[in-house]
C-alpha cells in the first residue's frame, strides 16, 4: 500500500472528472486529494465516495491565478510535509506545466500522460503511448520519492464501483513564494465548450470544409449532441480553424467515445492524434480515403449534405 496524493483542479462546482478516474484505479491505497483553492462541498462528498481519505483546500496569497512557480512552491511545501510516495494528476494544461517543475524540485522522476497503470504492492507501473500513439511502452519510476504521474483524461474510464473513505475536508495554508513569471491577463477562448482533450464527443472538419464559415454546420451538429469541434491540420493551415482546434501529431491527442471525421482523409499524422477514440465515424466522398480503414462506421458522401441531415435526425431523438 502506498500513500498517494491526487492533485486536482477545481471547476465551477466540482473537480476535474479525470480525478475520479484516477481515484478508481487507486483503490486499496491510502489516498488524499488536494486542490489549490476551495474544493466545493458537493465535490468533497463525491470524492469521499470514491476513496479520498483527506481532502485539502490549499490557500495562500498570490494563488488566485495559476503560475508555475507559485503553484510549485505551494505544493512542494505541502507534499513534503505529507510524506507521500506518489503524486498523481490528470494531464491537463496546468498539470503538464506544473508537474515536471515540481518533480525536479524533489529531484524525482515523473511519468507523463499514462493511459493505464497498476499499483501492485504499492508500486506504480504504467503504460504510455509514444511516437504519437504509434507505439506503447511500460513505464516505471526509480530514485527519490515522491514519484510523479500524470494521467490522460478519458483513458481509464469512470470507476465502476464506489469505495467509500472518510473524506475529511480541511484547509491548509501554503505559500506561493517568489513569482517571476506571473499572469497579467487571461484572454478567453472562442469556445466555452469542453476542451478537445477532455471532450467525450468530437466532430472534426478537414480541408473539405473549404472555408471558415462552413464550420457552422459542424458547430450545429456539435451543439445538438454535446460535442466539441476539432479540425485537421489542412483546415488549420488554410485558416478555417484556429490551431487550438487541431487534432493530430502536432495538435491535440484526443480519446473521445465518439469521433466524427468530416472531409478528413486520414493522414498518418491525423490518425496519430485520434486513433484511440472508442468509435470513429468518417464522412468522405472518396471511398478509398485512408480514414475508412480506421473507421467503425463510414459514410461515403458529401459532408455538406450528410452533416445537416445528421443534425436534424439527432434533434428529433435528443
Amino acid at each position: 500500500m502506498a500513500k498517494v496524493l491526487v492533485f486536482t483542479e477545481v471547476t465551477a462546482d466540482n473537480v476535474k472528472s479525470v480525478t475520479y478516474e484516477i481515484l478508481g484505479k487507486l483503490a486499496g491505497n491510502e489516498v488524499d486529494v488536494a486542490a489549490v483553492g476551495q474544493v466545493p462541498a458537493g465535490a468533497v462528498a463525491e470524492l469521499a465516495k470514491f476513496g479520498a481519505a483527506n481532502i485539502h483546500s490549499l490557500k495562500g496569497d498570490n494563488l488566485d491565478n495559476y503560475s508555475p512557480e507559485g503553484y510549485a512552491n505551494a505544493l512542494k511545501e505541502f507534499i513534503g510535509n505529507g510524506g507521500y510516495d506518489y503524486v498523481f494528476a490528470g494531464s491537463t494544461s496546468l498539470a503538464k506545466d506544473l508537474f515536471p517543475r515540481l518533480s525536479g524540485m524533489f529531484d524525482a522522476g515523473m511519468a507523463s500522460e499514462v493511459t493505464n497503470f497498476t499499483m501492485d504492492g504499492g508500486t506504480f507501473a504504467g503504460t504510455r503511448p509514444l511516437f504519437a500513439g504509434k507505439c506503447l511502452a511500460k513505464v516505471e519510476i526509480e530514485g527519490p520519492k515522491p514519484h510523479f504521474v500524470t494521467v490522460r483524461p478519458n483513458a481509464l474510464g469512470m470507476p465502476s464501483s464506489e469505495n467509500a473513505a472518510a473524506g475529511n475536508a480541511a484547509d491548509a495554508s501554503v505559500s506561493a513564494g517568489e513569482i517571476r513569471a506571473a499572469i497579467k491577463e487571461i484572454i478567453k477562448g472562442a469556445s466555452e465548450k469542453l476542451d478537445l482533450t477532455e471532450a467525450n464527443i468530437i466532430v472534426s472538419g478537414g480541408r473539405a470544409m473549404k472555408e471558415a464559415s462552413n464550420f457552422k454546420i459542424l458547430e450545429d451538429l456539435a451543439d445538438t449532441i454535446g460535442a466539441t469541434v476539432g479540425a485537421s491540420r489542412a483546415a488549420v493551415d488554410s485558416g478555417y480553424a484556429p490551431h487550438a482546434m487541431q487534432v493530430g501529431q502536432t495538435g491535440k491527442t484526443v480519446a473521445p467515445s465518439l469521433y466524427i471525421a468530416c472531409g478528413i482523409s486520414g493522414a498518418i499524422q491525423h490518425l496519430a492524434g485520434m486513433r484511440t477514440s472508442k468509435c470513429i465515424v468518417a464522412i468522405n466522398t472518396d471511398p478509398d480515403a485512408p480514414i475508412f480503414t480506421k473507421a467503425d462506421y463510414g459514410i461515403v458522401g458529401d459532408l455538406f449534405q450528410i452533416v445537416p441531415i445528421l443534425t436534424e435526425e439527432f434533434k428529433k431523438i435528443m
Partner: peptide, 14 residues
C-alpha cells in the same frame, strides 16, 4: 501568450 484548454490564452510577463 500561453495556450491552455479551450483555446484560452494566459498572458505572462517575465
Amino acid at each position: 501568450k500561453r495556450e491552455v484548454e479551450g483555446g484560452a490564452l494566459e498572458v505572462y510577463e517575465v
